[in-house]
């Protein structure tokens, strides 16, 4: 497979990983949108090259970002990254044999908590997903799901007991998503948990989980282990969804009211005419086909 011709996918920012994973002087191979890359970290600068060409680079939020195209917007804002009392936890890259869009959609999903994260983020006795609100914020081109609530037996590494967790979800680009949730120890703040997906190929993704949390008790290893546990519980689901590519064609899957954020996400992807990581459609006239 070679670099995609999907304009909507090319004109985005993607992370290639935490800056700390690129040691100075070393040349590290990577992959994005079907194309091989090399990353070279000089003393202060990072250089990303693909097929002999230098790509644009950003180094915000402890991560390395690049793009093959010309993104319409600069990187998203993350104001919590400026709060001095937050712990920055990089959970390490995990490779998943699935479309990155499947990863984002799963990240937005509450209804799987009792079954995939049993007795941690959900319990079978409390499976109901209460109505929540979704909106497309056109000024920043972000999707938000708000007023989400779910009963959680162990909401975070520092939890001693169950709680009704409050969540907000924020999709900042097709492959980058984050959630805000109430920390067990600071009910007036929001923990931030981000999932930055590096779509290596259409059905192979590298997930970079990143947390900006308020937690005075847990060790870094405990915080990272908690998030890795959650993510790898999701991995078995993600690798066993069929098709591996996200279907955008109506009728291929069966959303319910609990899937409101997924419905909005898929509509937004269609609006962007994004194709990379989506199942080829058979319901479009040739004139409707997204152009590269």
């Amino acid at each position: 497979m070679s670099l995609t011709d999907d304009r909507a996918a090319l004109d985005q920012w993607y992370t290639l990983g935490a800056l700390q994973d690129f040691p100075a002087g070393a040349e590290v191979p990577s992959r994005l949108l079907g194309e091989d890359l090399t990353v070279r970290r000089l003393t202060d600068d990072v250089e990303v090259r693909a097929a002999g060409r230098a790509l644009p680079v950003r180094t915000d939020y402890g991560h390395l970002w690049t793009s093959f195209g010309t993104p319409e917007r600069d990187l998203f804002e993350l104001p919590e990254s400026r709060e001095p009392d937050r712990r920055w936890i990089h959970c390490g890259p995990v490779r998943v044999r699935a479309s990155g869009l499947r990863l984002v959609e799963n990240f937005l999903d509450l209804a799987h908590f009792p079954y995939v994260h049993t007795d941690i983020l959900g319990s079978e006795a409390h499976p109901e997903v209460a109505r929540y609100e979704v909106e497309q914020r056109r000024d920043v081109d972000e999707l938000w799901a708000t007023k989400c609530e779910f009963y959680q037996p162990k909401a975070a590494a520092a939890s001693d007991e169950g709680q009704i967790s409050k969540y907000m979800y924020r999709v900042v680009s097709p492959f980058n998503v984050m959630l805000y949730k109430t920390p067990p120890t600071a009910p007036d703040r929001w923990d931030v948990i981000a999932l930055f997906v590096q779509p290596a190929d259409e059905a192979v993704s590298v997930a970079h989980a990143f947390m900006l949390v308020i937690d005075l008790t847990s060790t870094d290893a405990e915080l990272s282990a908690f998030q890795q546990m959650i993510f790898v519980q999701d991995k078995i689901v993600l690798e066993n969804q069929r098709p591996s590519l996200l279907p955008l064609q109506p009728g291929r899957e069966t959303p319910t009211r609990a899937d409101l954020s997924s419905v909005l996400y898929r509509r937004w992807l269609k609006e962007k005419q994004l194709r990379f990581g989506t199942e080829p459609r058979t319901d479009l006239q040739s004139t409707d086909l997204p152009h590269a």
Binding site: A111, V116, V237
Partner: peptide
């Protein structure tokens, strides 16, 4: 496994736990 949707022997969905 994913959302606990329950199917009977006739292949019809009996229960969607998110909407009890």
């Amino acid at each position: 496994l994913y959302h606990g949707w329950q199917y009977g022997a006739g292949a019809n969905c009996l229960r969607i736990p998110a909407h009890p």
